[in-house]
Amino acid sequence: MGVRTVWVLAEVTDGVVSLTTAELISQASTLGDRVECFSFNVDPSAIASTLGSYGAHKIWSVGELGGRLAGPVVAHAMASVAVNEGRPGAVLVGQTYDGRDILARLSVKWDLPVLTNVVNVTGELPDLVSEHAIFGGEKIVQAHFTHSSTGLFAIRAKSFEIRDHQAVEPEIVNVPMSEEVVADQAKITRSHVEERVGPKLDEAAVVVSGGRGLGQAENYQMIEELAKLLHGAPGASRAIVDAGWVPYAYQVGQTGKTVKPSLYLAVGISGATQHMVGMKAAKNIIAINKDKEAPIFQIADLGIVGDAHKVVPQLIDALRARG
């Protein structure tokens, strides 16, 4: 393995390779000469052609984890592959639950720092520069590692374009789960899927989100109704997720989903930096909020200073009338 190799964590849900994985492989191809993926909880031959179409040369398959959390198992597999093959120039994971766990464990095993919340990585190995959005995306910080060893990056969704790549047929190598890491670990006993209506939040062309300004949990129905009428996905600010009005799967922002729809309609959301980071890249933004000083108005293409309880029902009626 050379320093010009990039490792990418491949995340798969119900047999489908995540968009973030595709984005990471695409960008990794520009950073070095060779891209190798680590997969888990999936038959690698089922995803090989997909990963290859983005430019992956090899899949290290950790196989089924039998309910174990990915962090310790996959980090152990990566470290053991590196013992024989050498360490790569960089490791890219998505800023996901498992991605962060794996990167954190690997960072300790290799005694190397991490850069997380990355929104761009540029340059060519071994000289990579990462970009991070701070203060709600108002400023971009460019950072790099001062060491010349492996760069460990956790990257936010939708940071890179997925590019066409000359299809590669990736080689598959199994790195089965090690017995020493299996003992005394956390185990998943049951998985719950919180059903959502309409398109997926992070892929929808229209997102309608509600916040504290809705007043009470019952009023979130307006958001769902409006989203349905616009064939969009309903979203939420952290405040109302923390308050238990809607499940976490609805959250847009720093700790939630990053969305990039052609229209983002924010209702009763003031625009805390935590929220703006997750939706600022929307092509068009409409904001409805009572407080005319709300920061959301500074980035909205259209702002309505008004009471959501009045404006939204009128809007719903008008859209219904058009059928």
Partner: peptide
Amino acid sequence: VAEEVQAVHDAQARQGGEIFEDDGSGF
């Protein structure tokens, strides 16, 4: 110290658009 910040610059600013006070016709 194992990483350092090279530069900090302003993100591409998003221009605010038109803002209207709702007078019943905001929708």
